[in-house]
Design a protein around this nucleic acid. Structure first.
Lengths: 233, 233
DNA sequence: GGCGTAATAATTGGCGCCAATTATGTTGCA
DNA sequence: TGCAACATAATTGGCGCCAATTATTACGCC
């Protein structure tokens, strides 16, 4: 192993790592992402950092201001609603494909994930909750038989999570999400695409209403102020 | 003006320029995009070329193979159908918003574009046809009231056009497209979202069936062979 | 004569340097 | 004392060089 930061193959992965850090709210909306900081935090070269930043800018996870830098995108309410509506369109449309493409083994795995989520609601970090939730939906949309639809859904999910708190704002929201997951599995077992579709729409609306409720103050601090995140990392 | 290739501001635009070149079939699916060639063809620096290429790779317009380079994505039939289905989901879902958000002035402009397209069908280059067609749909989806939906639709359209010939394969397909445009305007005038939705679905299916019909041979030529494009530039 | 192998040529891609730009702190003036 | 302009510091971003990898050609061997 050489002294250089990280191996070549992981270059692409850096964008994902930074994206995940943003999802975990290590960097908050409106905050500037200084290249030097990232360079150090992720033990990467400046070039790799910039590549990753560019990629995230294309994906609209972050925003690029020439000669100023990159910052976590602050999504206004209008865009927030637009993302929500588009997500509903796509994710409900995936329901028939999911019902058609699902098999017993996958239902079993989904059920296991739903149970793990139930447990994480009681005793688990937000990161665990978020990851299990992602895994659940990922697995579900993976069987819809349309890879492009799947990618598009995921792109939109990432984008909305990038900025706003979707790591549930209230305990009630968490419980609702949990209940929805089990209800979805029920619908899958019954082969009821219409019901699944309705549940998905409800799921999205509930989640994002919670998010909207908490108006996001425009944190126009030009300097990043270390780790002020009050949540656990 | 300095001697340097191109001004700073146009850096972002280079990706679009290359994308357009691909749409116009200056580079064919499977063909390798050599950095040196692009550097010269677009009078840009190597760095800018690579940035643009990276961006297009993220957008899935082109494909990146490490240590081999970038090439125009060859879309297999399965992906082609996936894109088509997803487009139908999104574009039909936009219909209600379009009907709700349209005004007389926009209808007039759409009508003008539809007329221009009719004319271009008779006497116009493929590029003109393609551009007018783009303008028509762009304008239509722009009034749907959901900017994210609009972007997503456009991303998918670009992706499907990047690889396959959607500059209509047959004259009949052109005539069909033309007829559809006018029918859409009719539906808009009547404020009939359901009819518009149906027309859009029909429009997409027809277009992409034409495309599918012509199986694309896997052009695995490692060397680009100058300008073999038989079409007018 | 065909095939495996080594040398050569061409292309990609990682990386650091420095100029351009912007933010910050300080000084002078009204 | 408040404001404006200047000087200084920090950050971004353009760009070219060269190493690493791969394709191509030529050679020798079976």
């Amino acid at each position: 192993m050489t002294t250089r930061p990280i191996r070549h193959r992981e270059k692409r992965a850096l964008a994902s790592e930074i994206a995940q850090a943003i999802h975990m709210r290590a960097y908050r909306p409106g905050e500037w992402l200084r290249q030097i900081d990232l360079e150090e935090a992720f033990k990467a070269t400046r070039f790799d950092v910039r590549s990753a930043l560019d990629e995230l800018a294309v994906r609209k996870t972050i925003e690029h201001v020439p000669n100023r830098g990159y910052r976590v995108a602050e999504i206004d309410l209008k865009t927030q609603r637009a993302i929500r509506d588009t997500r509903i369109i796509l994710e409900t449309a995936a329901a028939p494909g999911i019902v058609a493409g699902i098999d017993a083994a996958t239902i079993a795995r989904l059920s296991e994930l739903a149970d793990r989520f139930s447990q994480a609601v009681l005793s688990g970090t937000r990161i665990e909750q978020s990851e299990i939730n992602s895994a659940f939906h990922h697995l579900m949309y993976a069987v819809c038989g349309n890879s492009v639809l799947e990618e598009t859904i995921w792109g939109l999910r990432d984008r909305s999570r990038g900025s706003s708190v979707t790591v549930w704002s209230s305990h009630q929201a968490l419980l609702n999400s949990d209940r929805d997951h089990h209800a979805m599995i029920e619908a899958l077992r019954a082969g009821d695409a219409t019901r699944l579709s309705g549940l998905i729409a409800h799921h999205i609306v509930k989640d994002m209403l919670e998010t909207e409720a908490r108006a996001q103050p425009s944190t126009e601090t030009s300097q990043s102020r270390g780790n002020e995140v009050s949540d656990e990392v």
